[in-house]
């Protein structure tokens, strides 16, 4: 087995045994299923609300976990020095980072799969036809968690976990402002300088709004396949870029 896979498996085993993940997952499932209990009155359109709220919850879960896990994974290893014996093995620091990150992606992917199934179950209980399209935003949330987690990992190579989390938050909020807002802002009375600043900041940030497909899905609109592919590629490129930056910064550090 390649070192990356060995390290990924180590990460997965550990995070399962720490149970933090399992507990948050359990709570999230609970929150997804709870709304179905309130449908006792047979409100019309309630399934759409459940879909909307459920997908929002899933996305929040992914973002929260990405911020937390991404920014604490490496500092935790450094603080406890668990990485010293591992890095004394014939592996590169890049392989170490990739192993950790792969483990993180798998854990996130599995959690989101569980949550996605819980959401589908909740919808089924409400009597709607199971629509697998709701899984599209779920999958994109995993990708989003990948991008954000990779950024936090990068930030945590040069600053404290708390600061890395804050930076991640900033990136997510500013990077996630829908492009339509930006266009609107720029066209309505902003000065040239303001416009340039906004464009410059956004240039160096992933536009998370590209990955936000909750609204069209909730309203039953079809998303073109070409757009989906492009969005996935876009997310993957940013994720890779942050991982490369993380390695570049981590390589130079004294441990």
């Amino acid at each position: 087995m390649s070192p990356v896979l060995v390290l990924a498996r180590l990460y997965i085993t550990e995070s399962m045994r720490r149970q933090l993940h399992l507990i948050t997952l359990f709570l999230a499932v609970l929150m997804l299923v709870l709304p179905t209990l309130f449908n006792a009155f047979g409100m019309t359109g309630f399934d759409r609300v459940t879909k909307d709220v459920g997908l929002t919850l899933l996305s929040l879960y992914a973002v929260g976990m990405a911020l937390f896990l991404g920014s604490t994974a490496l500092p935790g290893d450094l603080e406890h020095r668990t990485l010293h014996p591992l890095l004394a093995r014939p592996i590169s620091r890049m392989q170490y980072l990739l192993g950790k990150f792969l483990g993180y992606l798998v854990v996130m992917g599995l959690s989101m799969a569980v949550l996605g199934l819980a959401l589908l179950t909740a919808l089924a209980v409400l009597g709607t036809r199971a629509d697998p399209a709701v899984l599209i935003p779920v999958a994109l949330s995993v990708l989003e968690a990948g991008v954000l987690g990779a950024f936090c990992l990068f930030a945590s190579t040069f600053c404290s976990p708390a600061l890395a989390g804050v930076l991640g938050c900033f990136l997510y909020i500013v990077g996630g402002i829908p492009q339509t807002f930006i266009t609107f802002f720029l066209s309505s009375g902003s000065t040239q300088v303001q416009g340039a600043v906004v464009r410059a900041i956004r240039l160096f940030m992933p536009h998370f709004d590209v990955l936000h497909l909750k609204d069209p899905i909730v309203h039953g609109e079809a998303v073109p396949e070409a757009y989906l592919l492009a969005a996935v590629a876009y997310g993957l490129v940013w994720m890779l870029l942050f991982l490369l930056l993380a390695d570049w910064s981590f390589e130079r550090r004294d441990l």
């Binding site: 180590l10 550990e14 720490r18 406890h80 020095r81 668990t82 010293h84 014996p85």
Partner: peptide
Amino acid sequence: PETAVYHEF
């Protein structure tokens, strides 16, 4: 290592 803690779980 001098003061290593190993993966405790």
